[in-house]
């Protein structure tokens, strides 16, 4: 078995984002927000840098939840539910805030999932042999990776 990054190609940010959105919708159907960490991690398979991994997860899940909310607002009174919920905090009529916060939470779950996934892949790849049959993708320079982490913090 070759390295993960040798097996799964870097397909570019936008294709990876589309895949992540699809994963985001599908994995949300069971109704467990923790799965969004996995969605982010899955999206991170298709990009290489940690910054990109975060972004693909963040935007992918955020957009996925946004799409779901758009559907729920149209069909399932999501705005009324949100209004009731925010009303519990004394902020009547500001239900949109709940939906924005929810999308932000989903996005962060996806983003952090992406970062975690990328970090895991790269660590695992350290222990896996190179596989010449796999597609050759440039390994990230350690230096740049370190800088990214620092900048993320």
């Amino acid at each position: 078995m070759g390295k993960i990054d040798d097996t799964i190609p870097d397909i570019g940010f936008l294709p990876a984002l589309v895949i992540t959105i699809v994963f985001g919708i599908v994995f949300q159907l069971p109704g467990d927000w923790k799965l969004m960490l996995i969605v982010g991690a899955l999206g991170a398979l298709f990009v290489r840098r940690i910054r990109k991994a975060f972004l693909v997860g963040f935007l992918g899940v955020g957009l996925a939840w946004g799409l779901i909310f758009a559907y729920l607002i149209a069909t399932a009174q999501a705005m009324a539910v949100a209004d009731m919920f925010i009303g519990l905090l004394g902020l009547e009529g500001l239900g949109a805030i709940v939906i924005v916060i929810s999308i932000l939470i989903g996005a962060l779950l996806g983003g952090f999932g992406g970062m975690l996934g990328r970090a895991i892949y790269e660590l695992i790849d350290e222990f896996l042999p190179s596989d010449s049959s796999g597609s050759q993708t440039p390994r990230p320079e350690p230096k740049s990776s370190e800088e990214e982490m620092a900048s993320e913090q």
Binding site: Q28, L29, P30, L72, T75, Q77, A78, V81, L88, I105
Partner: peptide, 28 residues
């Protein structure tokens, strides 16, 4: 953050996910 009780919201903030939380109750 998503599982800890926040004031009256004992169920945690995770329930505001689009599916599997409070928004399910708006479905017909």
């Amino acid at each position: 953050i998503l599982t800890m009780p926040i004031g009256p919201l004992t169920g945690g903030l995770g329930i505001i996910q689009p599916i599997g939380g409070i928004f399910d109750n708006g479905a017909p």
